[in-house]
C-alpha cells in the first residue's frame, strides 16, 4: 500500500503524496517536536521535510526506502530549524504550554523544566539520536543511516544524551532533598 503510494507520488500524483502525508505526518511531527521542543518550529520542519520530499522524490530509487529517507530529510530540517533559531533558543526557554501537561504525577513541573533545560543544552545531533531511539523506537543501524554516522557514533551520542538527562534529574532530586532537610 505505502510502496504503491510512493511510486504514484514519485510519478507526480499529488493525491498519493497527500495520502503519504496523512500516513507519516503524525510520526514526523512527534519526532520533530521532541527534537526541537517547540510546536511552531516542529511544524515548520515537518512542512519543509515533506515539500523537499515531494521535490526530490523522483530521485528516490527504491520506494521501499521512503520512510528512512523521509526521516533523514526530517532530521536535516530539524537541524536547519535549530540553526535558524539558535540565537532565539539561547535566550528563550520553551514554555510548558507547548505540549499537554502530563497527567502522570511522576513528572512534576520541576522535572519537566529540568529535563527541558538539560535537553536543550544537548546538540541537535544528540537530541535526534535520542528521540529516534527512545521515542520512535528505531534500531541503532537505521538511526545511523538516517543521521549519516557510524553505529558507534550513534551509541556514543545516545550514551551522552541519556547520561546528561539522568544527571539533571539526579541533581535536581538532591537539591530537593537538601531543601527538604533545611526546611
Amino acid at each position: 500500500m505505502r510502496t504503491r503510494l510512493v511510486e504514484q507520488a514519485r510519478d507526480g500524483d499529488d493525491v498519493a503524496f497527500a495520502a503519504l502525508v496523512d500516513l507519516d505526518g503524525d510520526l514526523c511531527y512527534a519526532i520533530a517536536y521532541r527534537i526541537l521542543r517547540d510546536v511552531e518550529r516542529a511544524q515548520d520542519a515537518v512542512q519543509q521535510a515533506f515539500l523537499l520530499a515531494w521535490r526530490e522524490l523522483p530521485r528516490l530509487r527504491d520506494p521501499e526506502r521512503f520512510s528512512p529517507w523521509l526521516r533523514r530529510l526530517l532530521v536535516n530540517a530539524c537541524y536547519e530549524e535549530h540553526r535558524r533559531h539558535r540565537r532565539w533558543s539561547s535566550r528563550i526557554w520553551a514554555l510548558p504550554v507547548d505540549g499537554p501537561i502530563s497527567a502522570d504525577p511522576t513528572v512534576s513541573v520541576d522535572d519537566r523544566d529540568t529535563l527541558d533545560r538539560a535537553f536543550l543544552r544537548l546538540s541537535p545531533q544528540h537530541r535526534a539520536v535520542f528521540v529516534l531511539h527512545h521515542h520512535a523506537g528505531l534500531p541503532l543501524a537505521e538511526i545511523a543511516e538516517i543521521v549519516g554516522v557510524p553505529v558507534g557514533t550513534v551509541k556514543s551520542r545516545l550514551h551522552h544524551a541519556i547520561n546528561a538527562l539522568r544527571a539533571a534529574i539526579v541533581a535536581d532530586s538532591q537539591v530537593d532533598s537538601t531543601e527538604a532537610r533545611l526546611a
Partner: peptide, 10 residues
C-alpha cells in the same frame, strides 16, 4: 521520569 517526559507532547 525521562520516559514519561519524552512521551508527553503533541
Amino acid at each position: 521520569i525521562i520516559a514519561t517526559w519524552l512521551d508527553d507532547g503533541p
